[in-house]
């Protein structure tokens, strides 16, 4: 048990990811307001992106912008650029899909006059 806690201390990124993931998931599961659910979805998405980016860190490495005159390049000096690339597009796509989900919420509000999912369900019947 104690060595498990010691293993977690070596991975603070995973601990933070789990807490953020669970809080986002909790909002999505328990709240009845549609916009609050979208807020929970946003926290959940950013927690997953945080998890990915944290794997790019290397001890003693700096940002992946090459210094001038370095030939051949010392690879250990720069962080891993690949997770950055994958998450960069994911963040922009996340905001675009956030716009679509908010558009769906406002379309539901115009049609049924409520943001509460129980109210909307009652008016659907």
């Amino acid at each position: 048990m104690l060595e498990l806690v010691g293993a977690w201390l070596l991975r603070p990124n995973v601990v933070a990811f789990v807490i953020l993931f669970l809080s986002g998931f909790y909002i999505m599961v328990t709240h009845h307001n549609l916009i609050k659910k979208v807020i929970g979805l946003y926290i959940l998405q950013t927690s997953v992106i945080f998890f990915l980016v944290a794997f790019s860190a290397k001890t003693g490495a700096t940002v992946p912008i090459l210094l001038p005159g370095a030939d051949p390049v010392d690879v250990g000096l720069y962080t891993n650029p690949l997770p950055h690339v994958l998450t960069l597009t994911a963040i922009v796509v996340q905001v675009a899909t956030l716009g679509v989900s908010l558009a769906l919420v406002s379309a539901i509000y115009r049609q049924y006059g409520s943001l509460d999912e129980d109210e909307v369900g009652k008016r659907l019947e």
Binding site: V14, P64, L66, P68, V73, N80
Partner: peptide, 30 residues
């Protein structure tokens, strides 16, 4: 956290870091 020998940092990303400036004249590897 911060392990330089993790699988994600040793597979393909060193190739990008080593060749970016030579191939595309772009210092920003991202």
């Amino acid at each position: 956290f911060g392990d330089p020998a993790s699988p994600a940092s040793t597979h393909v990303s060193p190739v990008y870091l080593a060749n970016s400036l030579k191939d595309t004249l772009t210092p920003n590897v991202v």
